[in-house]
């Protein structure tokens, strides 16, 4: 079983994966997701505070995955994307509620809370964000 999915690991990342809680530096207004404990721009002069991301952004790059990781077999082929959040940070996430051929770079998207994967039939179910098209 992949050890990226231990119960303790899942528990300590729930704020970020369930609610997209990152950080913001009050000195330079830099936004960080996943959260950073210190600001790489301001270093010791940085003032870090918690900041929940709005969950909106656009597709920066994407790929349709045909050879999935263990635990993702039922979803294949699925679309993975680098997402550019409106606040600035980029992250890697799966796209949902969209056909692979309809995905394009700069497409507006928003975060939704979904099941990510399952550790076998009796294993724990992992939740977190995916992104879907954000029709204006």
């Amino acid at each position: 079983m992949p050890h990226r999915k231990s119960l303790a690991l899942v528990w300590r990342r729930r704020e970020q994966r369930y609610k997209m809680v990152g950080t913001r530096c009050a000195t330079c207004d830099g936004h960080f997701f996943p959260p950073r404990g210190f600001c790489p721009n301001c270093r010791r002069k940085g003032r870090i505070e918690e900041k929940e991301m709005a969950g909106t952004g656009k597709v920066f790059s994407y790929t349709t995955v045909y050879a999935p990781l263990e635990g993702f077999e039922e979803l294949a082929p699925y679309v993975m994307a680098i997402v550019q959040l409106d606040e600035g940070p980029r992250l890697t996430a799966m796209l949902c509620d969209v056909e692979p051929e309809d995905v394009e770079i700069d497409m507006p998207i928003r975060a939704v809370f979904r099941k990510i994967s399952e550790d076998g039939k009796s294993g724990i179910i992992h939740y977190g964000y995916k992104f879907r098209p954000n029709k204006k």
Binding site: P2, R13, P34, L75, I116
Partner: peptide, 24 residues
């Protein structure tokens, strides 16, 4: 592992993301 693989990104997928942006 926490911010790429957890969400379903395989190793080839990362280079595919790089490729797609390079094509664009």
């Amino acid at each position: 592992q926490e911010w790429e693989a957890f969400f379903g990104a395989t190793f080839p997928a990362l280079y595919a993301l790089l490729a797609r942006r390079h094509m664009y």
